[in-house]
């Protein structure tokens, strides 16, 4: 039975994903521990007819790993009347590093000096203004993929030649950021609802401290300042569930780097331990959202 023909009496909750990783399994197990009916929906089989009103599920947890599919899954299900967590507007903003930076700035949050250049040639001028060493990142992407550290103009010119040779026009839009001098670590805060659940340091020999690149995680004290920054960052991009990445500069001041709408929390969970059960908190949040809608 497809998403378009499933009866409206089906489970009120759905989890949409194409890959059932450890994180998604934890969420499904949290549903099952509560005896809460849910439906797992493979996003690769999902389609919705625009003229069809109603949706098989009232509340959808969007765990699709692909940015394009995550965004359009959220849009299609919201158009059909479902409440999607995270909402499409959060997926939209978080999936674009520049739009995220604009939202962080507009919220008054500390964030690294950033420029957007519309061509690789213009990026060289932006880099001169920002100063070396600097970082360029693809507008869309994760896990530190294609994020490049530029120590000087010579390297920058070479990287810009490669960027100019990429086939997609959007690849030629260059996101430039100062390289924040930091300890060999960054900070990940997981936010669910309006609460920061905890924080971890992510350390690596690589300058990119992504867990997907092998960074190690350990517990970080969740100070009130850190929690407030993270919750505000999640709110300013409309994310109800988020992984907020921050760095400390040499003065110890915190800067918000980005907000992830499809937070991967296995490393976080190992570091913070079972007293902060992320999957359970996610399911609790969905339940609370459903209760608030019916009040």
């Amino acid at each position: 039975m497809t998403a378009a023909t499933r009866p409206a009496s089906a489970a009120p909750f759905a989890v949409v994903a194409s890959r059932l990783r450890a994180d998604e399994k934890r969420v499904l197990e949290a549903f099952e521990r509560r005896g809460l009916p849910y439906e797992f929906v493979d996003s690769r089989a999902l389609w919705r007819e625009l003229q069809q009103s109603g949706t098989p599920w009232s509340f959808v947890l969007n765990r699709e790993i692909g940015q394009a599919r995550a965004l359009y899954a959220a849009r299609a299900l919201e158009a059909a009347g479902a409440t999607v967590v995270n909402p499409a507007r959060a997926v939209d903003v978080c999936g674009d590093k520049y739009r995220t930076s604009v939202a962080l700035r507009d919220a008054g949050l500390p964030t690294p000096r950033t420029a957007l250049a519309l061509t690789p040639e213009a990026a060289l001028d932006a880099l001169e203004a920002i100063g070396y060493p600097a970082v360029v990142k693809p507008l869309t992407g994760s896990w530190g993929r294609l994020v490049s550290k530029l120590p000087d103009r010579e390297v920058a010119e070479t990287v810009m030649e490669y960027i100019a040779a990429l086939p997609s026009p959007v690849s030629h839009i260059v996101y430039v950021q100062e390289l924040v001098p930091k300890p060999d670590r960054d900070i990940r805060v997981v936010v669910v609802g309006d609460e920061a659940l905890g924080a971890t340091y992510r350390s690596s020999a690589d300058w990119r401290t992504n867990v997907a690149r092998g960074a190690e995680t350990r517990r970080c004290p969740l100070t009130p300042e850190l929690a407030k920054l993270a919750v505000t960052a999640a709110q300013c991009v409309h994310a109800e569930i988020a992984g907020v990445d921050l760095v400390e500069d040499t003065d110890g001041d915190l800067l918000v780097l980005e907000v992830n709408h499809g937070v991967e929390f296995s490393g976080f969970q190992r570091a913070v331990g079972p007293e902060v059960p992320v999957a359970d908190r996610i399911v609790d949040h969905l339940i609370a959202r459903s209760q608030s809608c019916f009040e």
Binding site: S18, R19, L20, I65, G66, Q67, A68, G95, T140, G141, S142, W143, R145, A212, G243, N260, H261, G262, V263, E264
Partner: peptide, 23 residues
């Protein structure tokens, strides 16, 4: 490997990582 069905248990190579995959 991706589990395709559980009864009978069938698996296939999981799809390759795509450019826009991530958090």
């Amino acid at each position: 490997l991706e589990v395709l069905t559980v009864d009978p248990l069938q698996v296939a190579l999981a799809p390759d990582v795509e450019e826009d995959w991530g958090e």
